[in-house]
Amino acid sequence: MTFKAIINGKTLKGETTTEAVDAATAEKVFKQYFNDNGLDGEWTYDDATKTFTVTE
């Protein structure tokens, strides 16, 4: 399945996608990506659209 992340950061904005077997796996991938890029913020997840949003 394809999962999307919308990034609303102070220094980084945009979208990225990942292929994962479930939402928990996708969340781990996205959180690692955000940690690697120095992002920290509020997380939400919309199961209907398979979209994570992080707002810094």
Rank of each mutant, 00 (worst) to 15 (best):
Met1Val: 13
Met1Glu: 10
Met1Ser: 10
Met1Thr: 13
Met1Asp: 13
Thr2Pro: 04
Thr2Cys: 15
Thr2Gln: 11
Phe3Asn: 05
Phe3Ser: 04
Phe3Met: 05
Phe3Leu: 03
Phe3Gly: 06
Phe3Val: 05
Lys4Ile: 13
Lys4Pro: 06
Lys4Thr: 13
Lys4Gly: 03
Lys4Glu: 04
Ala5Tyr: 07
Ala5Phe: 15
Ala5Gly: 03
Ala5Lys: 00
Ile6Asn: 03
Ile6Tyr: 06
Ile6Asp: 03
Ile7Pro: 00
Ile7Ala: 07
Ile7Arg: 01
Asn8Met: 14
Asn8Leu: 14
Asn8Lys: 12
Asn8Asp: 08
Asn8Trp: 11
Asn8Pro: 03
Asn8Gly: 04
Asn8Gln: 12
Gly9Thr: 15
Gly9Val: 13
Gly9Gln: 09
Gly9Tyr: 11
Gly9Asn: 04
Lys10Gly: 09
Lys10Met: 10
Lys10Thr: 11
Lys10Leu: 14
Lys10Phe: 09
Thr11Tyr: 13
Thr11Ile: 11
Thr11Pro: 06
Thr11Arg: 09
Thr11Ser: 12
Thr11Glu: 10
Thr11Met: 08
Leu12Val: 12
Leu12Ala: 06
Leu12Gln: 10
Lys13Ala: 08
Lys13Phe: 12
Lys13Asp: 06
Lys13Met: 11
Gly14Ile: 15
Gly14Tyr: 15
Glu15Leu: 11
Glu15Ile: 13
Glu15Met: 13
Glu15Gln: 09
Glu15His: 08
Glu15Asp: 04
Glu15Val: 13
Glu15Gly: 04
Thr16Trp: 15
Thr16Asp: 02
Thr16Phe: 15
Thr16Arg: 13
Thr16Gln: 11
Thr16Asn: 04
Thr17Ser: 11
Thr17Tyr: 14
Thr17His: 08
Thr18Leu: 12
Thr18Gly: 02
Thr18Ile: 15
Thr18Asn: 02
Thr18His: 04
Thr18Phe: 15
Glu19Phe: 15
Glu19Gly: 03
Glu19Trp: 15
Glu19Ile: 15
Glu19Tyr: 14
Ala20Arg: 03
Ala20Cys: 07
Ala20Val: 03
Ala20Ile: 03
Ala20Gly: 02
Val21Gln: 12
Val21His: 12
Val21Asp: 09
Val21Arg: 12
Val21Ala: 08
Asp22Arg: 00
Asp22Met: 01
Asp22Leu: 01
Asp22Ala: 01
Ala23Gly: 03
Ala23Tyr: 09
Ala23Cys: 11
Ala24Phe: 08
Ala24Pro: 05
Ala24Glu: 12
Ala24Asp: 08
Thr25Leu: 05
Thr25Glu: 12
Thr25Gln: 12
Ala26Asn: 00
Ala26Glu: 00
Ala26Tyr: 01
Ala26Gly: 00
Glu27Met: 13
Glu27His: 09
Lys28Arg: 13
Lys28Cys: 10
Lys28Gln: 10
Lys28Val: 07
Lys28Asp: 05
Val29Glu: 05
Val29Met: 11
Val29Ile: 14
Val29Thr: 10
Phe30Val: 01
Phe30Met: 03
Phe30Gln: 00
Phe30Lys: 00
Lys31Gln: 07
Lys31Tyr: 04
Lys31His: 05
Lys31Cys: 05
Lys31Asp: 01
Lys31Asn: 03
Gln32Glu: 10
Gln32Gly: 05
Gln32Cys: 06
Gln32Ile: 08
Tyr33Lys: 04
Tyr33Gln: 06
Tyr33Gly: 01
Tyr33Trp: 15
Tyr33Asp: 00
Tyr33Thr: 04
Tyr33Ile: 10
Phe34Cys: 15
Phe34Arg: 01
Phe34Glu: 01
Phe34Ile: 09
Phe34Lys: 01
Phe34Thr: 10
Phe34Gly: 03
Asn35Tyr: 14
Asn35Met: 14
Asn35Lys: 15
Asn35Leu: 14
Asn35Asp: 10
Asp36Asn: 08
Asp36Val: 09
Asp36Cys: 12
Asp36His: 07
Asn37Ala: 13
Asn37Asp: 05
Asn37Pro: 04
Asn37Arg: 14
Asn37Ser: 12
Asn37His: 15
Asn37Lys: 14
Gly38Ala: 05
Gly38Ile: 07
Gly38Tyr: 06
Leu39Asp: 03
Leu39Asn: 03
Leu39Glu: 05
Leu39Gln: 05
Leu39Ser: 04
Asp40Cys: 13
Asp40Asn: 12
Asp40Tyr: 15
Asp40Lys: 13
Asp40Phe: 14
Asp40Met: 13
Asp40Ser: 13
Asp40His: 13
Gly41Asp: 04
Gly41His: 09
Gly41Ser: 06
Gly41Trp: 15
Gly41Lys: 04
Gly41Val: 13
Glu42Gln: 11
Glu42Tyr: 11
Glu42Ile: 14
Glu42Cys: 12
Trp43Lys: 00
Trp43Ser: 01
Trp43Thr: 02
Trp43Tyr: 04
Trp43Phe: 08
Trp43Ala: 02
Trp43Val: 07
Thr44Ile: 08
Thr44Tyr: 09
Thr44Ser: 12
Thr44Gln: 08
Thr44Glu: 11
Tyr45Trp: 02
Tyr45Cys: 00
Tyr45Thr: 01
Tyr45Glu: 00
Tyr45Asn: 01
Tyr45Lys: 01
Asp46Arg: 02
Asp46Ser: 04
Asp46Met: 02
Asp46Gln: 02
Asp46Asn: 09
Asp46Ala: 00
Asp46Phe: 01
Asp47Thr: 05
Asp47Asn: 07
Asp47Arg: 05
Asp47Met: 04
Ala48Cys: 08
Ala48Asp: 11
Ala48Tyr: 08
Ala48Ser: 10
Thr49His: 04
Thr49Cys: 03
Thr49Arg: 05
Thr49Asp: 03
Thr49Ser: 10
Thr49Gln: 04
Lys50Val: 02
Lys50Trp: 05
Lys50Tyr: 07
Lys50Pro: 00
Thr51Val: 06
Thr51Asp: 00
Thr51His: 01
Thr51Gln: 03
Phe52Tyr: 04
Phe52Cys: 01
Phe52Asp: 00
Phe52Leu: 01
Phe52Glu: 01
Phe52Arg: 00
Phe52Met: 01
Phe52Trp: 06
Phe52Val: 02
Val54Cys: 05
Thr55Arg: 03
Thr55Tyr: 10
Thr55Pro: 03
Thr55His: 07
Thr55Gly: 04
Glu56Val: 14
Glu56Ala: 09
Glu56Asp: 08
